[in-house]
Design a protein around this nucleic acid. Structure first.
Lengths: 236, 236
DNA sequence: ACGAGTTATAAGGTTAACCTTATAATAAAT
DNA sequence: ATTTATTATAAGGTTAACCTTATAACTCGT
């Protein structure tokens, strides 16, 4: 993770986007990529070709795109830079949790290895970003804390938020405004199967969220559901 | 100094360069500009035209370029961002003094007002960069500590280094390797008028520097030249 | 006041990263 | 198996920021 692998800011954005979209399927359709980056499919295809020529990825026609080992290294490098900047912005500069993502997007492209590693030391080698996602190590490893999607829970189940994912500013702001952030306790109150609305108790407050939002939250079950109030005190 | 005035990284570099070259003459020839930015005169001229159309500067044919009020504001904004990043890199990340300039050049373009001001607070509202140059205030003021060029001194004169200027990585590294940095005491030992070499005592070490390098150092005279050793202890 | 040297402009080229519109190839679903 | 929807490619355009080479305009020193 020492020398920069991608040429240009743009390629870095592509690598990061592919990495994020990879979680559902390792083969990422160019259309999803274009969609996420807010550019046309034609432009994305062009860029994919350029990146294929640089051995950053493979392209299976009509199927999608998959990172090569070199591409994966580059992607993790950028994600490391990104998440370290997020930690800095939140922990040191006390900037709001929700805006740190977009601000880090600017900074991540302007940071070489020397600065990133000095930052990591300065921040105390953090392992997770403020949104709960793991920070890749310099040797290219990224391990998620085991958890399950909030949408798999049933009413009355009790959990702690591990992370929000994928990270986009709009979603982060929205969830933050409902108190949804890593470390917070959530209890499923009821699920309306008809219009897909979830009523949740988030850190003691009752909130209603759509299934789409609920599906972005990864949690860890709290096995001991004796008295809600008691458990809450333990964990918040 | 809130909203960004310049379009693109490149324009920001031009503004900064003009501001630095302005110190000798308020009318900066395009050729000097091109020289400093390491680009062709034709390209610099093109860019100057674009920036003139954006009212960032005026161009007096065959004379040079002068910043408008808007351009000046933009330039000071970038210089503020740049010098705050330098302080961060040196003070917090403990990166070497000489490399901080180039690293800050990357970061300065990736930082909006919110981050810069949060940084300033975090750093304790510093007034000078690690090379001794003043950090502009958010309202667009920049005041130099009064000083004189080291090249105006005579043998046996005694001074403290205030700043190095203009900042370029090569010059900073070179001067740093000879112990020349703000706060250090310098005594002029002898000046060879023939090949323009200056023999100096820099922080107790005898060093030889060219006139070109000496001219980049701004100092403050030490009025009390009783016993060199004594004075040194007071000031280092 | 003229010629050397500087400065500006004109003309045409390059690259990266985007765009639109139109057509062709393939996958998936009836 | 054929239609529909997705995906890819072809063709041509745009913008910012650079480049070179050539020519024109101007300044300044003698």
């Amino acid at each position: 993770m020492s020398e920069r692998v991608a040429t240009g800011e743009s390629a870095e954005m592509y690598l990061k986007a592919i990495c994020e979209l990879m979680t559902t399927d390792p083969l990422v359709p160019i259309s999803s990529l274009a969609d996420r980056l807010g550019i046309s499919v034609v432009s994305a295809t062009e860029m994919v070709h350029r990146m294929r020529d640089q051995d950053l990825l493979e392209h299976k026609r009509y199927k999608g795109v998959r990172l090569t080992e070199e591409g994966r290294r580059g992607a993790l490098d950028i994600i490391r830079r990104h998440r370290l900047w997020e930690r800095f912005l939140v922990d040191k500069l006390k900037l709001p949790w929700e805006v740190s993502h977009d601000l880090a997007c600017q900074l991540e492209h302007a940071t070489g290895a020397e600065v990133v590693e000095a930052m990591a030391t300065f921040l105390g080698e953090p392992t997770h970003c403020p949104h709960g996602n793991p920070i890749p190590t310099p040797d290219g490893t990224m391990t998620f804390r085991p958890g399950l999607s909030l949408e798999t829970l049933k009413p009355d189940e009790n959990c702690i938020v591990l992370r929000i994912r994928p990270e986009t500013n709009a979603a982060l702001s929205y969830l933050a405004s409902h108190g949804m952030m890593p470390g917070v306790q959530v209890i499923v109150k009821s699920i309306n199967a008809f219009d897909h609305l979830w009523t949740l108790e988030i850190g003691g407050q009752e909130e209603i969220l759509s299934k789409a939002m609920v599906s972005r939250v990864v949690v860890q079950l709290v096995d001991d559901p004796t008295e809600d109030q008691e458990v809450e005190k333990e964990h918040v």
